[in-house]
Design a protein around this nucleic acid. Structure first.
Length: 494
DNA sequence: TTTTGAGTTGTTCGA
DNA sequence: GTCGAACAACTCAAA
């Protein structure tokens, strides 16, 4: 040990607490690496924060994924002579006690950029020696700025600037440590047992699985990603989002793998499109970092004035997948059953809620957070504001998805629909996107009577589309009046 | 300061 | 059936 210490600080032999939050992995973990570099032992610690577990946006599915991933991490740690130490409570209180008990010199953690996380970390850092390294995005949200120092609010220039900065290469990826010396510690809590564990079969919550998926995706499907990613019935996407959400894989590892794939000419386009999706994740993290008000308000303030219908019954029908539009219902049932849906499906069901039912996008945002394994405040909020047409760089207000056209385009044979709506299994291809058009005899043959086995469409799309165009036009007109009045007042004051 | 070009993912209508 | 225009200005970013 060549490290020098002042004699008034804790003894040089004191260990370090690795505070785990969104970095449930041993590979390429900068916080773990920094903690080990101190050389005096590392206690891996996870704190179950009741405020995160019981908020309005909390999710039993995500909790199940998290707890199972922690169990797997504990097993990986035990194979390296360590173990996971768990406690429930306020992080500052838990860390203060733990630090005293084991005489820890420092607490090292990966940064986290949500408004809640920053407040929490600020309080901890004010009282304890907290060191933050790395983070759930590749670049710090404040790193990419315009020439005048202000943050970007349009994706494409953000992406250009983001890509102009150096990308990581494989040599930078930190290996998983072979051995993690761990100090004696007071007994932690056992990981809570789930009473009714969510079925995690489509997303086994282990670091090994995350690494396997990344490798498999970049070795094959990434080449066709540009086209196939939109197909609802094909496995053209990486399905890595829950793993990135909880840090079972590092963003660095994802960019390195995509960069390697991009070197093969036949995979270049797909790899670049996938990287672009990863950069969307970076973009929305930066937007929330710089503009935390988006969690409650439209980025474009005038659209807070939209007159939503907000009918509870209509909202319930959407949540349960009983809208009468097969592709919407299939996606909603997949979401509730598995905690994941396709990106295209997210846009499609979001467009339906906001623009066909005229329900406040925040209702949908909350429901997604309650069900998505990958639910992340920044990305989810950005996606909803984009679809609603009220956010940064938003979809034009007149871009309203037609649920029937989208179904025909992205699930042409209705495979996705039939998988999630067994009541439509025997409906002929011709009617799979418009079952309400089936003649009575066909309904009988298919064992699917509209109104009994499957609902008729809950709104007429053409009518709903016009209603939304009107509601948005009205919000814009209000804004115009306000601007004109303000300008007049200014002129008078001059 | 002014100007210029551009802006994830669609739909509908009429020629 | 295919194609281009309209949908509506507006704001952002950069030169």
């Amino acid at each position: 040990m060549s490290q020098s210490t002042n004699n008034w600080t804790a003894p040089a032999t004191s260990p370090v607490i690795w505070w785990i939050r969104r970095d449930l992995r041993l590979h390429d973990n900068q916080a773990l690496h920094a903690a080990l570099a101190r050389g005096d032992g590392v206690l891996p610690c996870f704190i179950i924060d009741p405020r995160l577990m019981h908020g309005r946006h909390a999710s039993p599915k995500r909790r199940a994924f998290l707890l199972a991933a922690l169990g797997a991490l504990d097993a990986d740690l035990r194979a390296r002579g360590s173990h996971l130490w768990v406690a429930t409570g306020d992080p500052l209180a838990v860390l203060t006690r733990l630090r005293e008990k084991i005489d820890a010199r420092a607490i090292v953690a990966e940064a986290d950029y949500s408004p809640y996380a920053r407040r929490r970390d600020g309080q901890v850092a004010a009282a304890l020696p907290l060191e933050l390294v790395g983070g759930p995005t590749l670049r710090h949200p404040a790193e990419v700025r315009k020439a005048d120092g202000t943050p970007y609010t349009v994706f494409t220039p953000f992406k250009r600037a983001w890509l102009s900065l150096p990308l990581p290469d494989r040599a930078m990826l930190l290996p998983a440590p072979a051995h993690i010396p761990t100090p004696a510690a007071p007994p932690g809590e056992p990981l809570p047992e789930e009473e009714a564990p969510h079925a995690l079969a489509p997303f086994p919550p282990t670091e090994a699985e995350a690494r396997r998926r990344l490798e498999a995706f970049c070795a094959g499907p990434i080449a066709a990603y540009a086209d196939r990613r939109n197909q609802l019935d094909a496995a053209g996407t990486s399905r890595l989002s829950p793993y990135l959400r909880f840090g079972l894989i590092s963003p660095r590892a994802a960019f390195v793998a995509a960069g390697d794939a991009a070197r093969h000419p036949e995979a270049r386009q797909g790899a670049e499109v996938w990287m672009s999706e990863l950069i969307w994740r970076e973009f929305y993290t930066a937007i929330l970092y710089h503009f935390p008000r988006v969690l409650r308000h439209s980025f474009q303030a005038e659209y807070d004035g939209i007159q939503w219908k907000n009918e509870a019954q209509a909202f319930d029908a959407w949540c349960q997948g009983h809208t009468g539009y097969p592709v919407v219902d299939a996606a909603m049932r997949q979401l509730v059953a598995t905690g994941w849906i396709h990106n295209r499906a997210r846009m499609l069901v979001a467009s339906f809620l906001v623009k066909d039912l005229l329900i406040d996008w925040r209702w949908g945002e909350r429901f997604f957070m309650q069900h998505l394994l990958d639910g992340d405040p920044a990305a989810n909020n950005g996606g909803w504001q984009w679809t609603a047409g009220v956010g940064t760089d938003a979809a034009p207000y007149f871009r309203i998805f037609n649920p029937t056209t989208q179904g025909r385009k992205f699930d042409p044979e209705g495979r996705f629909i039939r998988r999630w709506l067994p009541e439509l299994a025997a409906v002929p291809d011709r009617y799979i996107h418009t079952p309400w058009e089936m003649p009575a005899t066909v309904q009988a043959q298919a064992g699917c009577r509209i109104g009994q086995d499957y609902p008729p469409p809950m709104v007429d799309h053409a009518f709903a589309r016009q209603r939304t165009l009107d509601a948005y036009a009205q919000a814009r007109a209000q804004r115009k009046i306000k601007t004109t009045v303000r300008n007049r007042v200014l002129r008078i004051n001059e």
